[in-house]
Each structure stands twice: as C-alpha cells, then as structure tokens.
Design a protein around this nucleic acid. Structure first.
Lengths: 273, 273
DNA sequence: GAACGTTATTCGATATATAGAACATCCTCG
DNA sequence: CGAGGATGTTCTATATATCGAATAACGTTC
C-alpha cells in the first residue's frame, strides 16, 4: 500500500478520490482516459495511460476496450496505441443543437466584437468547478487572445469568476478553498478579490484588470437561465491599453445590455421587471 | 425473467449484448445514456432513461451521478431531469485539434462545393459500423441536403458504403449480414450492390444514384491514411437532375483527384517521429 | 543472437458494483 | 383532502469487475 503511491501526479490524485466516491468507478476512469487522450498530442499505449492515471494495466485495458467498442476511442492494431475517436463529435453536435444560448448569443458576440474590435466569448458555467467556452467571436486584430469552443477554465478565475462568486449561490468557506487553488499572473489577495466581487454585485458586471493574464483586461457580464439562476456569461478580452482607448465604459454597457437581453430570452418570456 | 423483456426496444437490445460482452459494462451503460440524452429533445428523468435502456433504476442513477460528476451530464435539482452537459464539447475540441484530415480537407471541400454548387462532406470511417461527418461545405442552393458535423451514419450505406466495401478489408459473410440491416429508399439487391462495389473498385470512386435517398445522387471517393488503409472519404450530394446538368464526370474527377491528393498528404508524412 | 527490459494480454481470487426490493417523496385525480 | 400511482432514492446480498501476478510478445542492447 505504500509502494503504490510512489509518484502520484495531479490528475490521478483527483481520479483516485473520484473513483473511491463513485458507485460507478469505471465511468470516472473512462472519463479520465478520455481527457488524457484529449490532452496528449500522440496516441498512447496501455501502460502509459495506466501509469499516468494510476490505474492497474489490466483494468485500464478493459476500460480502453469498452471505449473503443463505443467508438469514443480509436485503436491502431499495428502500433497498439489509443487515441480519441470521432464519436465524441456526435455527442458535441447533439449538445450544440439543443442549446438555445449558442444561437441566441452569437449575433450579440459578433456585434460587440466588431464594434470594439475585441475577442468576445460566450461561456457556460458548469457546476461550480469549471466554465466552458461555447461560442466565440474573434477580433481580427487580437490573434494572440484566441480561444476555442470547448476550452475549459476554472470557474472562479478572471472576470467570470467574480461574476460567479457575486451571483451564484455558494458559501464563503467553499469559495475561499477554491480561490486558493487558482493560478493568476498577478494574484489578488482574497480580501481584494472579495471587494471586487462585492463591486461586481453592485454594478452587475465584473472586470479583471490584468490579474488573470498580465496586460489583458477581461470584462464579464452574467446571463441567467431563470430568476437568479446563473448559467452563462458574456466575456470580452482585450489588451488593457487598447481597451481603454476603445472606451471601457461603453463596452461594459454594451456587454451588460446584451447579457440582460439574453437572460430575458432564455428565461422564456419577453417578461417585464 | 419473463416479465423483464416485456418491451425490448432496439437501443437496449444492443446495449444488453454490449454490457454482457464487455468487462467494463458501466462504460457501455454510460455511453448509452449519453447517446440517449443526445437524441432526446428534452431533459429526462431517471426512470425514463432506465426504462428506455432496459436498466435497473438504481444502477441508472449511479451511472448518471458519475456522469454528472465528470461534467458530461447536467442535472437540474428542481426538475430532477438530466441532459447533456458542455463537457462533451471539450473532448470534441481536442479531437478536432488533433486531426489533420479536417484542416487538409476543408479547402478541397469548399472548392468542389463552390464549383459544382453541391453539398460536400468529409467523413471519417470509424470501425466498420459507422461513418461520422467531420467536415462539411454546404452549397448555397441545396439547403435540404444539409448535414452537420458529428452526424453518424451506418458504414455501408450509400456511396460511402460501396467505397468501404470496395477498399476496406472485411469478409463477405460479415458484409452481407450488415448489408441486410440497412435502410434505403430504393434498396438494391445484394447482387446489384456487389456489382456496384466491384465497379467502385475498378474506377476508384462510388456512385449512389438515388438508392439511399430517392432523387439524390451521392458520389464518394476514398481517402487512405496509409498504404491501403482506408480512413476517410470525400462525399458530394446533389439532386440527381441538377447533378447531371452540372456534369457528373467532371465532378467525379474533381472528387477523385482531391481524395488522392489527401491520401498522399496523409500518408506522405515526410517526417517519421 | 541471447538476455534483458519493455510492452500487451490472460487468468483466477476477492473486494465491490449491481440488481431488486423497500422506502420516501412528489403529483394527480376523485 | 386523501388515495393512488407515479417518481427519485437508499439499502443489502450476490453476481462480477477489478486487482495483481503470471504469461506472452515484443523491441533493444550488448
């Protein structure tokens, strides 16, 4: 029992607890395998995967074979290597089809992106762990700030994080624990951050002025799926200096207006209030 | 034991055998749940899912909870309904990033689509069961023939199917078994089909003249990942009559040329790790 | 070309995921 | 309101998925 944890690397720590907690550990393992294969630039062998995730090779093989059978993983019989298979695309397509936010948000993203020449994102807030980019409108200029649909970030980071803290419903202890784990270029103290969260709650949107990525200003406005149910956010990114020239207040208003309009459309009605 | 199979519907038959065969049945169940949620237009409850897939409710609940924990499924605590979560997007993004075919094929698809005013697809051949659309270029005219990235079709159907039969390596018995299960608008007999497969092998591309979808002609040319290893196909769809006007032979040549060029680029690989 | 360190894979014992029933909770309808 | 029939959820015995060692098939190095 001691020799086993000789070199526990981070992904497999989390996996270990997920496996222990769940009543369907095979699924956690499968998810871990899929994510590992996703990250890897090259196809991987059984041993490599097992070692990386802290799995027993034979178990790992079972998992891989099941994933191959389900067409989520491809297997090259010559090299005996595994990689992601196109089956994952099919799921993604279904998800995209069914989510009104994407279609509704795209025009707004495009308009703001064009007007201010910024990269603008629509992000989906999943659980309280992560956000996922679900729609983008890239500015022609800022290629360096490009992000892809499907990218995943920690929930509490940057401007979006302040929105989640401000408008989501979680207790402060949990919040502080998560906050401690974040990686910023210029980390704010927890006190500073709480103040910014408070301000976010008052003004209705959040700003990250170079904390997450040095030199980059991020503005985020919350979108609610139903009364008070935070589900998405609109996020604009730009080089700090350029953003000031473009007129930060104007951008904030535009983002906020679009976000509120989306909230109305998502919660179903043309409703008043 | 009798009462159980009162109303076995098709998806759960397959699931049952997959579960029995695999050494990681939880993963097959998870995949079935994901696909079911993908197909469904509305979020589903535990019982509904369990019934539809022939699962025990408690087991189904475990699977769902695991999938929620992995952020592949979202759970609405108010309605207690489950649906696909954006996590599936992340996997898809990784797959897309890593597949050179998509980037290489897109220009060719666009060119052919523009020249002949047709919908042109790049499809990936996964296993011998399915093909998945991985790149599209829609014609402006034929909106009715639109297909989305991620769409899944039986491997042996239509023109692509004849390519797979012609250039893949499978035995005839297996082939006939699979052929019998296909659904066509105007089904060819197995003999007719075999003749067409032979012709496909000779001329290097396949044509489906209204068999799969009445009135629609489909042309497909194979793309090889390595010497003789069939992996993708380029597929052009058009209303039969319009296609004749546009010049079927010219289209066939263009498709074949692009497919061969892609094969070279994919297998060419000047570099060897 | 033999010996070695890899790797993938099989196989049997046991910890445990699953099935099925019991429980709890919500709605619907008389 | 209160009975009925859904639903989601917990609980536990047992069939079985997982582990770990043993085997087989590599590729490398000396």
């Amino acid at each position: 029992m001691d020799t086993k944890r000789q070199r526990m690397n981070s992904p497999d720590r989390e996996l270990a607890i997920a496996v222990r907690a769940s009543k369907a550990p095979a699924i956690s393992r499968a998810a871990a395998v899929l994510r590992l294969l996703g990250k890897s630039d090259t196809p991987l062998g059984v041993q490599t995967i097992a070692r990386e995730l802290g799995l027993v090779p034979s178990t790992c093989l079972h998992v891989l074979r099941a994933l191959v059978a389900e067409e989520f993983v491809s297997f090259d019989p010559d090299t005996k290597r595994y990689s992601l298979e196109a089956g994952v695309l099919t799921l993604a397509r279904h998800w995209l089809r069914r989510n009104r936010f994407n279609d509704l948000a795209q025009p707004a993203l495009d308009r703001i992106s064009r007007t201010f020449d910024l990269t603008v994102l629509g992000v989906h807030i999943v659980g309280l762990d992560h956000i996922i980019v679900v729609a983008t409108s890239q500015s022609s200029q800022n290629f360096q700030l490009s992000t892809q649909i499907g990218s995943r970030f920690p929930a509490l980071i940057s401007a979006t994080g302040r929105c989640i803290a401000a408008f989501g419903d979680q207790d402060e202890n949990d919040l502080e624990g998560r906050f401690k784990k974040l990686r910023w270029d210029e980390p704010p103290t927890f006190e500073e951050w709480k103040a910014q969260v408070r301000q976010t709650r008052e003004q209705g949107f959040a700003v990250d002025a170079g904390n997450y990525i040095a030199g980059v200003t991020v503005v985020a406005a919350p979108v609610f799926r139903a009364r008070g149910k935070l589900s998405h956010a609109l996020v604009a990114l730009g080089i700090g200096s350029a953003l000031k020239r473009a007129g930060l207040p104007t951008l904030q208003n535009a983002l906020l207006a679009s976000a509120q309009s989306l909230s109305n459309q998502l919660s179903g009605e043309i409703d008043s209030e």
